[in-house]
């Protein structure tokens, strides 16, 4: 059987809220090392990769590898019934056709159980190469969210250019154009506000803003978003979930035909 208890149930709520508009349904894969998901959006332009480590759970048991297909909209409906401070336990019997979500309030005076029907989902599993990236930018997650939101009001795509000291986000649209530059800033007294750039080579790539806006829904999970870029490769946008794992998004670049 599979059984996993997350004391900070809010994390699971936030993860599902971050991905439910991007992917319709997905297989959640559980094995002894943890709980993970890999899924492409419906237009196959981006990829979501979630991994929650077994040791990030308060209790974790997985007797055999299971893949549980769920509709994200349904999962979201159920998780919305959990309070932000509830602990969430997921349970499923081997070969079962449902997964049970149990919500416990902090004082354990309220206990609720919701069963979600599992579904068979055919999904293509992609092999993500372990790339060395040309540039890595770690910036406050809220800042990244604001940048992609603001630029979306002007254009549809963003050119992200990283140099040694700064990262520049630029867009062009019918009404004009916009550029936002963030300088490296390793403020030791305010680590949550730091912007750090690690670069092997200057890089400049163009991406559809619609997807980056969708990725930014993961903002509540982490203080920082980490962007990893290499010439003519998908961007990796990572949100580290402290002590538990990470939620990562890959987006194919726009490339001149």
């Amino acid at each position: 059987m599979f059984e996993a208890r997350l004391a900070q149930g809010a994390l699971l709520k936030k993860v599902v809220e971050a991905i439910k508009d991007l992917i319709e349904d997905a297989n959640f894969d559980c094995n002894s090392s943890g709980f993970s998901l890999q899924a492409m959006d419906s237009s196959h332009v981006s990829l979501v990769a979630l991994s929650l480590r077994a040791d990030g759970f308060e209790h974790y048991r997985c007797d055999r590898n299971v893949s549980m297909g769920m509709k994200l909209a349904s999962l979201s409906k159920i998780l919305k019934c959990a309070n932000g401070d509830d602990a969430i336990t997921m349970k499923s019997e081997d070969n079962g056709d449902t997964i049970t979500f149990m919500f416990e309030s902090p004082e354990q005076e309220r206990l609720s159980e919701f069963d979600l029907k599992l579904m068979d989902i055919d999904s293509e599993h992609l092999g993500i190469p372990d790339n060395e990236y040309d540039a890595t930018v770690k910036l406050p997650a809220a800042e990244f969210q604001r940048i992609v939101k603001d630029l979306s009001t002007i254009g549809d795509t963003v050119e992200i250019s990283v140099t040694k000291d700064a990262v520049k986000f630029g867009t062009t649209g019918d009404i004009g154009n916009a550029n936002i530059m963030c300088r490296q800033n390793k403020a030791a007294d305010k680590p949550d506000e730091s912007t750090e750039i690690d670069i092997n080579e200057a890089v400049s790539l163009t991406f559809a803003l619609r997807y980056l806006n969708s990725f930014a829904k993961a903002t509540p999970l982490s203080t920082h978003a980490v962007l990893k870029l290499s010439k003519e490769l998908p961007i990796l946008v990572e949100y580290h979930i402290p002590e538990v794992g990470r939620l990562a998004f890959y987006l194919a670049p726009k490339i001149e035909d």
């Binding site: 492409m40 599993h125 092999g127 190469p129 890959y250 670049p253």
Partner: peptide, 14 residues
């Protein structure tokens, strides 16, 4: 113009 490629064209089936 700039084309949008699929993510699968970068990451092969694994």
């Amino acid at each position: 113009g700039s084309g949008q490629r699929s993510i699968a064209s970068f990451f092969g089936a694994g």
